[in-house]
Design a binder for these strands. Structure first.
Lengths: 206, 206
DNA sequence: AGTTGCTATTGACATGGTGACAACAGCTTG
DNA sequence: CAAGCTGTTGTCACCATGTCAATAGCAACT
């Protein structure tokens, strides 16, 4: 008779366990709406007691906010590869890079930004606004316009607005398949070029 | 002793009661996120028993879907007032009308489209997609482009994408105050003009 | 190897929200 | 004023969430 003391559960480092639960939560929240996902589901998926979720994230809502935060974090562009050509060329490069990012996230990305619903959640709104802001800043820098201009705030505002079109166009491409990547590329590049090259100067004269 | 038979509650026509509950639900769902609003809250707000909500809408989710449907319904433009001038002029008129609509809804509109969260709700997605589609069709017709063109599907797709920019720009204007109405008007009009006049022809050659 | 201590993890409990359903009561019609 | 129709209520069973004391992996030190 071997004294096999197989442990019922393994004890992990807090960071690892946190990450593991977060992964499962991301998957489930991506599949079903918030109210349809129970903490029991997440706990079962992670092979963990339900109470552990509360221990690490406080509440279901806390976990949800972490998921949102994780999902909307956009990597920073590698600016060393940006060409030195005309505005149109730099824009084209930026848009192409942007579509690469979207393509890599695929359905997961859509699950995050694809659904807009009723429900004024200030926390979620704050997180998304922050993500939009940094994304806009990145884009402006990548394209090479000086951010420190006097009208920098307005520039970032219209770039954030443009971000709305990026998301919507991405949905058309990824989920609905009504536009090809090439078409999206063309549309976004031309629109952004016009926005930065034409409209923005006009705006400053208002 | 007067035989005051003050009734404890009034019996309303189903449509009226439905509408009343819906109004309260719209208000509450606009203030707090879905999970933070209980059917008890809604029932109290409407001065009604909680069970009545289930009777009229089946479930909390059913009520929520009704709210979303109601909120994203956009009125149809009165095309009799559209000028006959150039594309740019018609676009300018359409955008102005669009901003009037947004302005009229104000904060309520923001409560609907302002928050994007994680959570793939197919029903909500379908409702919003439908609303976007009819809005795009309206815009195309108002601007005066023939919808029956061979590339009509692609045209509507890029107009839907443009709709994403309209929403984002509206948020910048209404909630954040980072852009004035005049600035939004200029940006959207120029972008849409470029989209329809320049980019769309390019797209067809792809 | 045995013991001790730390803490990650569990399991049970209390609370509150949701949906179903039978009973009740306004209102209308004869 | 009686009777029926149905809008409305209140209760019941079930499920989800958050809290907390108890448990048990695991490492360090005899």
């Amino acid at each position: 008779m071997s004294t096999e003391t197989e442990p019922r559960w393994r004890r992990l480092e807090p960071d690892q366990r946190r990450e593991q639960i977060l992964d499962c939560a991301i998957r489930l929240f991506g599949e079903r709406p918030y109210a349809e996902v129970s903490t029991t589901d997440i706990a079962r998926e992670a092979g963990v007691a339900r109470g552990l979720i509360n221990h690490y994230f406080g509440s279901k809502r806390g976990l949800y906010l972490e998921v949102v935060r994780r999902m909307v974090t956009v990597p920073v562009a590698d600016r060393s590869a940006v060409p030195d050509g005309s505005l149109a060329e730099r824009v084209e490069f930026s848009v192409d890079w942007l579509l690469d990012v979207i393509s890599a996230r695929g359905k997961t990305w859509v699950a995050v930004l694809g659904t807009e619903g009723v429900g004024n959640d200030p926390e979620v709104e704050r997180i998304l606004a922050e993500a939009d802001e940094t994304a806009a800043e990145n884009l402006v820098r990548t394209v090479g316009l000086r951010d420190a201009e006097p009208a920098g705030a307005e520039l970032r505002a219209i770039v954030r607005a443009f971000g709305g079109m990026v998301k919507a166009a991405g949905r058309e491409w990824i989920t609905h398949g009504t536009l090809t990547r090439e078409q999206v590329q063309l549309v976004l590049a031309e629109q952004l070029t016009a926005l930065l090259g034409e409209t923005f100067p006009h705006l400053q004269r208002l």
